[in-house]
């Protein structure tokens, strides 16, 4: 697939690539549809109820009908909202979410762009979403959404720091920012073992980045009604929801690639199972964890949240970097 990128851009080439992107979009949409279904089912089961079961067999068509409903809804906009920004915000939130998937190596062959700075690309692009969120919060001209937008801006920027710092350990170990190289470096042992501290920090910071429980403050229903997207409805609202779940897809992929050995089997003797299956299994575990946390956890408090990022996660991440650096230097015999 990557070989296409290296060829001269011809019509067929571009067509192929666009088709592949559309295919990925469909896969992602399919994932989002059934992630929402699965989420509602799992949380339902944990709460001793069956979850959606009315639309279609076993409720499988529930999300599809929900999305259809959203798409058919009237496109409402508050009278005093900033028209241009109000329209721009969902796009700004969603596009980077999809764009980050370009560098994700799902297996050693399925990858769109094999960038040398894959990790950096992900982190750089994903911060653009904050702009979308804060734009939405401001443009809606609603006090709740303004507070929600400010909260998420503060939260997402703060947690980005420990998120990046926790990956530095892996980059030090691998000596590369390329996601494929990072996976290949995990042939013997997955990064979760030597980088356990980094893994924990990454997991927590990722929750905050995704605005998911227990860090779902920006959309804290009981306080801010719905946070930054309180004035959005119809397909604009669907875009925000889509962005949230696509980020979950992206973050799940990233965590599998960085810490869980990507498509590599748990033991070399099990490599008769296709790599994509391995990838999906690991990915599913992460997604399940999301739902599980959501069914159990209460929400963090806004002021404690910031303290936690700067006073706990960041020092731990920095300590992890130092530790990794020392160990690597020691192994290389410089000490």
């Amino acid at each position: 697939m990557s070989s296409w990128l290296e060829q001269a851009p011809s019509l067929t080439n571009v067509l192929h690539y666009s088709l592949a992107a559309v295919a990925l979009l469909l896969v992602v949409l399919g994932f989002v549809t059934y992630a929402i279904y699965f989420e509602r089912k799992v949380i339902g089961w944990m709460q001793l109820r069956p979850g959606p079961n009315r639309v279609g067999p076993l409720g499988l068509l529930q999300t599809i009908s929900d999305v259809t409903k959203l798409l058919l809804k009237e496109d409402t906009r508050p009278k005093h909202a900033d028209k241009a920004l109000f329209t721009l915000a969902p796009i700004l939130a969603y596009s980077p979410a999809f764009a980050v998937l370009a560098v994700m190596p799902f297996t050693d062959t399925i990858q769109f762009a094999d960038l040398g700075v894959g990790v950096l690309y992900y982190i750089a692009l994903s911060s653009i979403t904050v702009m979308g969120v804060i734009t939405a919060g401001w443009a809606s001209n609603n006090k709740y959404s303004l507070i929600g937008g400010m909260r998420s801006a503060a939260q997402m920027i703060s947690y980005e720091v420990p998120l990046v710092m926790s990956v530095v350990g892996i980059i030090l170990m691998t000596g590369s920012l390329n996601l494929k190289d990072i996976v290949y470096a995990q042939q013997d042992v997955w990064n979760i073992v030597p980088q356990f501290l980094g893994f924990i920090v990454f997991l927590i910071a990722a929750q905050a980045e995704l605005n998911r429980s227990p860090f779902d403050l920006p959309e804290a229903e009981s306080e801010l009604v719905a946070g930054y997207h309180v004035e959005y409805s119809g397909f604009r609202f669907a875009m925000f929801m889509l962005a949230e779940y696509v980020y979950m897809f992206g973050m799940g992929t990233l965590i599998v690639v960085l810490f869980l050995g990507g498509w590599l089997p748990i033991h070399p003797s099990l490599d008769f199972i296709p790599p994509i299956i391995w990838f999906i299994i690991k990915f599913m575990f992460y997604v399940f964890l999301q739902f599980w946390l959501r069914a159990t956890m209460p929400r963090f408090r806004a002021d404690q949240l910031m303290g936690f990022a700067w006073k706990v996660l960041l020092p731990v991440a920095l300590f992890n970097i130092m530790l990794t650096a020392f160990v690597i230097t020691y192994q290389n015999g410089f000490m």
């Binding site: 709460q47 001793l48 109820r49 429980s213 069914a295 956890m297 209460p298 929400r299």
Partner: peptide, 16 residues
């Protein structure tokens, strides 16, 4: 109260 604080599970267990 737990629902206010952001945990959705306890509500269902209490109501059971």
């Amino acid at each position: 109260y737990l629902l206010d604080i952001g945990a959705i599970g306890p509500f269902l267990y209490a109501f059971r």
